[in-house]
Design a binder for these strands. Structure first.
Lengths: 344, 344
DNA sequence: TTGAAAGCGCTACCAC
DNA sequence: GTGGTAGCGCTTTCAA
């Protein structure tokens, strides 16, 4: 046994060559056996598999990507800072749907999280670099979607949420029926006989913020009610409390409020409780999302349910379809529904 | 202009060859210019950069990785399901530290999240595949650390948190002084004259759970107090409430409680408030972490602060040092301190 | 069913 | 300071 190189330097990992030699076949055949191609004899497959096992071989992904032009991974882009991302259960839920949808394909999910607000375009350069086969972009704000920049992404992209302020040909999106949900909230609150109603909106540079407000206003109009009582939030609990305070100060006669997310609604409930205002007796509250918080809030939240997990799954499946060369629906809208609990 | 190929098929992206030709130099020179190597004439650099810009060239990462044997990315492994991950601000904070620590190196962070509890070993196979240059593993449970499996990872690994139930040579870790923090909590509560004290622990298959309990018990012994009142949680708010309920039922004379995380403490506070028990008058509460929740809780939490963000940064920097060929300290322990607020 | 050989795009060594 | 050339590990024609 030659023992060159006394240094305990890490040995080179086995290559396809090593495996082929050990199995007594050529590299080509070894490759075919490993990739499960049809025309390989059973005993050859067996021999190769044994060699793989014994050598602890695993294919070099870079080499494979170089020739197949497939990386086997897709990106999930979230142009929010980690703080926001991790404090809203919406993300956990949509992410679980995405991983579920992606699972059968064996693709690896690469999560790109914003470091600083507004560096969405920096992420886009990552997508252009050929690191991934496709991408999903969720929770985007208007500023994140520079149509020119997005257009240069050389891989399929699916959006979670309608793009706002940009036309993006060939870039399908999956969204909930936010406007329909806003209308549902309006109808429900108006249906209780309350007439002085207001809303706490999401960020108005996001489709989820804009469309829920639009739906709410449409509903108000249908009931001939004023739609002027609004305060803006940013989907965080703190902003919900602040907005609630402002709404109360400006409209002391308020009887009901539609809050555009459950997380903000928890903040609003806290503000109401702090002021000794009873829910729903004094003011009725309707939320949006129906995740976690809604049923455990005090009182349990009446809310508009959107199928968040299902949306995640659909986003992933749509991307997989595109990777497969199929052309998906340009827009897939999921229904929302009212869930009655105690708060309204 | 030849117009072969009528099909509007996506044109091949430019390669180094294309750039070199456009700049009137060889591939070698173009490569050096692009990688900022010293010995290239300024005018050459200029010409190459212009060609890059005009062609919209970006280097093929697979080809680069194949020859340099560096992927330019590192993995963050979190063997928790998305739900847990996204509901505890601990992760947001440690993640922000990690991205900050990684930033100067230009490495891309790849987040590997558990899909099902206990598939930590599946992630390990990803690490073995040569996709990344190194890895960080945080929030690991005993079951996630199979020493044999980890030993086969061919890249540097840094652990966030002391490994439990396994000796892992060459695998450094960064941790807070959890035991010290537990003792601090014991001293503080005992120092208020309360004698009937209990604790809500974290998961006892995690170092953070074990060590905080050990420290607490040591502190209790030093004050000659009984340490039998304990209930176990899993670091979620819900488990904190459940454990608090159990503790109250089993020890009606309880005067103070140390809860091993702020998130669990919020659950405990809710349970106490629901039973009409006043904090700190009837029962004093000390938490652990000092993130977000602690100061906004009702009442504001007295807690043991650990430098979470700093830990994240240190984890990243330690990994970078290893990628650089340096040998880091096998263990880096960060100090904890008592933060006095209203709850104890 | 198998093997030989070309080549994916890039870096790095060597000469000049 | 620059160019030629070999080769990273793999898949994929093309022949046999």
């Amino acid at each position: 046994m030659d023992d060159v190189g006394v240094e305990s330097t890490r040995p080179d990992p086995p290559t396809l060559q090593t495996v082929a030699a050990a199995a007594g076949v050529s590299r080509s055949t070894a490759s075919r056996a490993i990739n499960g191609e049809p025309r390989v004899s059973p005993e050859t497959v067996e021999a190769v598999q044994r060699a793989v096992r014994e050598l602890g071989y695993s294919p070099n992904p870079a080499a494979r990507t170089l020739v197949t032009r497939r990386t086997g991974s897709v990106a999930l882009v979230v142009p929010e800072t980690g703080d926001v991302l991790f404090s809203d259960p919406y993300f956990a839920t949509v992410l679980s749907g995405i991983t579920a949808g992606l699972a059968p394909s064996g693709n690896q999910l690469i999560l790109l999280i914003g470091q600083h607000p507004g560096d969405g375009n920096q992420m886009i350069s990552y997508l252009r670099g050929g690191h991934v086969d496709g991408a999903m972009i969720i929770s985007h704000h208007r500023a994140d979607l520079d149509a020119d920049a997005l257009g240069k992404i050389p891989v399929p992209v699916v959006l979670g949420g309608r793009p706002v302020g940009a036309t993006l040909p060939g870039m399908p999106y999956v969204d909930a029926d936010n406007a329909g949900g806003g209308r549902l909230a309006a109808h429900h609150l108006a249906g209780t006989g309350r007439t002085r109603l207001g809303t706490i909106t999401g960020p108005l540079d996001m489709p989820a913020g804009i469309d829920r407000l639009d739906g709410w206003r449409a509903g108000m109009r249908e009931h001939n009610l004023a739609d002027d009582a609004t305060a803006g939030g940013d989907f965080t609990a703190a902003s919900g409390a602040t907005a609630m305070a402002r709404l109360l100060d400006e409209h002391p006669d308020l009887q009901g409020v539609f809050v555009a997310s459950d997380l903000m609604a928890t903040g609003a409930l806290q503000e109401l409780s702090g002021r000794g205002i009873r829910v729903p007796d004094d003011i009725a509250v309707v939320g949006f999302d129906d995740l976690m918080f809604a049923s455990t809030a005090t009182p349990p939240l009446t809310t508009i349910r959107q199928p968040t997990r299902e949306a995640g799954r659909l986003i992933a499946e749509t991307l997989l379809a595109m990777l497969d060369g199929r052309t998906p629906e340009p827009a897939q809208i999921l229904p929302t529904e009212l869930v009655r609990r105690a708060s309204a």
